[in-house]
Amino acid sequence: MDVFMKGLSKAKEGVVAAAEKTKQGVAEAAGKTKEGVLYVGSKTKEGVVHGVATVAEKTKEQVTNVGGAVVTGVTAVAQKTVEGAGSIAAATGFVKKDQLGKNEEGAPQEGILEDMPVDPDNEAYEMPSEEGYQDYEPEA
């Protein structure tokens, strides 16, 4: 019985440690998101679009440190934060509304985080759909 109880105690310690790591990862992701939003706020009209992409990228980098179902929630929060940063930029006159959601080359930025393969159960990952990809044929 002692062996059984000791095993359960060790398992509990492992769960607590994993929860603490997840909590730490979420806190880091939130900190990076805040950094990115402050970065966007300090940019001029020309830099705002690039700044919004930076927020998304920093958040995406930190999301990889967070495991399990938390990833889905962090990704949703990050996307809403990026959308909010863009709205703030438009409201303050840093950028025109028609410039939001495009990178410096004018290509749409939507789907940055949505296409990231995420499995809350950590069982399997699927690649994003290939609808947006084109076949590449090298020139002879």
Rank of each mutant, 00 (worst) to 15 (best):
M1C: 00
D2P: 01
D2W: 02
D2I: 01
V3D: 02
V3Q: 04
F4A: 00
M5S: 04
K6F: 09
S9P: 00
A11M: 05
K12P: 00
E13R: 02
E13Y: 02
E13F: 10
E13N: 15
E13W: 12
G14H: 13
G14D: 06
G14S: 15
V16R: 02
A17T: 12
A17C: 10
A19C: 12
A19S: 04
E20C: 09
E20W: 15
E20H: 08
K23Y: 09
G25M: 11
E28A: 04
A30Q: 01
A30K: 02
G31W: 12
T33A: 08
K34I: 08
K34L: 09
G36V: 15
V37L: 04
Y39D: 01
Y39A: 08
V40A: 13
G41C: 05
G41S: 02
G41N: 08
S42A: 10
S42P: 02
K43L: 10
K43C: 08
K43R: 07
K45H: 03
E46S: 08
G47Y: 06
G47A: 13
G47S: 11
V48T: 05
V49D: 02
V49W: 11
A53E: 07
T54C: 14
T54Y: 03
V55S: 02
V55C: 05
A56F: 05
E57K: 10
T59F: 14
E61P: 03
E61T: 06
Q62R: 13
V63H: 01
N65E: 12
N65M: 09
V66G: 03
V66P: 03
G67A: 14
G67N: 04
G68K: 15
A69D: 01
V70Y: 03
T72K: 10
T72V: 06
G73Q: 14
T75W: 14
T75P: 02
A76F: 03
V77L: 11
K80D: 03
T81I: 12
V82G: 06
V82K: 12
A85P: 07
G86I: 05
G86Q: 14
S87M: 03
S87V: 04
A89T: 06
G93D: 06
G93I: 15
K96Q: 06
K96F: 13
K96L: 11
K96C: 15
K97L: 05
D98M: 07
D98F: 14
D98K: 08
L100I: 02
G101Q: 14
K102Q: 01
N103P: 04
E104W: 12
E104Q: 13
E104M: 15
E104I: 07
E105M: 15
P108I: 09
P108N: 11
P108G: 02
G111M: 02
G111Q: 13
G111V: 09
E114I: 09
M116D: 01
P117M: 12
P117Y: 03
V118F: 08
V118R: 14
D119R: 01
P120A: 09
D121P: 07
D121K: 07
D121Y: 14
D121M: 07
N122T: 10
N122C: 12
A124W: 08
Y125P: 04
Y125K: 09
M127A: 08
M127G: 03
P128L: 12
P128A: 09
S129K: 06
E130M: 14
E130R: 11
E130W: 08
Y136S: 11
P138T: 08
P138Y: 07
E139C: 01
E139P: 08
A140T: 13
A140R: 12
